[in-house]
Design a protein around this nucleic acid. Structure first.
Lengths: 234, 234
DNA sequence: GCCGACATAATTGTATACAAAGTTGTGCTA
DNA sequence: TAGCACAACTTTGTATACAATTATGTCGGC
């Protein structure tokens, strides 16, 4: 594919294992790299202008977060969560996020409220601009931000992972319907936070997650591939 | 240090990244590798009879589980959770494990009950034999087994990680007192499971975790090192 | 005698070479 | 022509060589 210039990322930046992980995770979260996409080591190494060593470390990290599936002697692929895994992810979220929202409501400061408000605003703007991937990323960041405000970095790390995996789940199982319900739920949560109503925030988060699961098509039919690309690469 | 034979692991076994991770994780969990221990790459590579490539992958995996801390250009060390991190780990456990015990109670079969009973028996035997490390490992496996029975592999993975980290926390902050309370709590849980009393199991797990935190000395004094070895290697 | 700078050694970070496994394409046979 | 076997190619797995960074030990100056 042409000369290296065309496929390289920003030339000046130094890519380390962590920055490559962040870059790939973002791309996955935004659905620029859909589930099942092959992530060849040489391909990535050339794209980032680094050696396979760093790429492998990044892919290993992503596989530990269940965003990438490593098949021995076959390569790395963007993960394709099963229906089972999808249910499990949202089960885990339902255990973690409502209580975390509760804690966050009690610790919320004005500055943090402002941050959340601007997040919702950006998400809205992205939706209006038709940038669905970016909107989904921002929507996820809203949830992670709440965990951060709760000041529980361990739980935050779990939630962050679950949110990323949720993005893959949405890519696979989302049934196109109302896209606005998301931001509405976030608005409601924000009001609860603004009023420091922890109990309400907890309840709203719980409902929000149930709504999310309900908006998925988790019947076992058409389970694994859902795209012809997968049919040939597995 | 002498000829390679003396420091090698079992010669016949083929060590892969995953098996090395499991081996090291077990050693950490059993306190054979106490917090702060330097894990040199060449040292490990020679011990396992593999190259540094595999060792690095293993250390990377362990760092993602927060069992090993990687300091750039300094090396890998068995993690030393801060008081803050200790509190966070048990906060996360308190969100995950009680509900998981609830689910497990509803799904418990006779075979699984037998497994849990034998686990408690082995833990008792280990304690009697003075093998505290092994007892701690078995105690942790009891909790992970419950998550497995609940049939939620995603939550199980989180709990498994938290249990391993708890082992480090116990190594650092355990205040020597009653050592038997552990097995008593597990016995009580077992009875609840045997009676399929999900509500009771949930409550018992909640109490058990509170007792565990209470048995730790999480005052901020003497926080980081706690051993002279650390004083010089950081 | 104590402190700082420089040289040396040890350890980790990265790239690359080679080996192993898998995939694909071709040609032979039935 | 369909199916199988073999060979060439591609991609990943592992080891190792080299570079960069940090730690250590020594020497000289104050």
């Amino acid at each position: 594919m042409g000369d290296p210039e065309t496929m390289n990322k920003i030339e000046t930046r130094v890519w380390t294992s962590d920055t490559v992980v962040a870059d790939l995770e973002r791309a996955i979260h935004e659905h620029r790299l859909p589930p099942g996409t092959k992530l060849g080591e040489d391909e990535l190494a050339e794209a980032y202008g680094i050696s396979r060593t760093i790429v492998r470390a990044a892919l290993l990290a992503l596989s530990h977060r269940h965003l990438v599936e490593l098949k021995r002697n076959r390569g790395a692929f963007v993960a394709q969560p099963s229906v089972r895994e999808a249910r499990e992810v949202f089960e885990a979220r339902s255990l973690l996020e409502p209580r975390t929202a509760h804690s966050a409501a009690l610790r919320m400061t004005e500055a943090e409220l402002t941050r959340l408000r601007s997040n919702i605003r950006e998400e809205h703007a992205a939706l209006d601009a038709g940038e669905n991937g970016r909107a989904l990323l921002l929507s996820g960041q809203f949830h992670v931000e709440i965990a951060r405000i709760a000041d529980q970095s361990t739980i935050e790390a779990f939630i962050s992972q679950l949110i990323s995996r949720s993005s893959l789940i949405i890519a696979l199982y989302w049934r196109r319907r109302a896209a606005l319900c998301e931001t509405q739920a976030h608005h409601a949560l924000l009001d609860a936070f603004a009023n420091r109503d922890a109990a309400l925030a907890e309840q709203l988060m719980k409902s929000h997650l149930l709504d999310l699961v309900a908006s998925l098509d988790l019947r076992n039919v058409t389970q694994p591939p859902m795209s012809l690309r997968e049919a040939l690469q597995r």
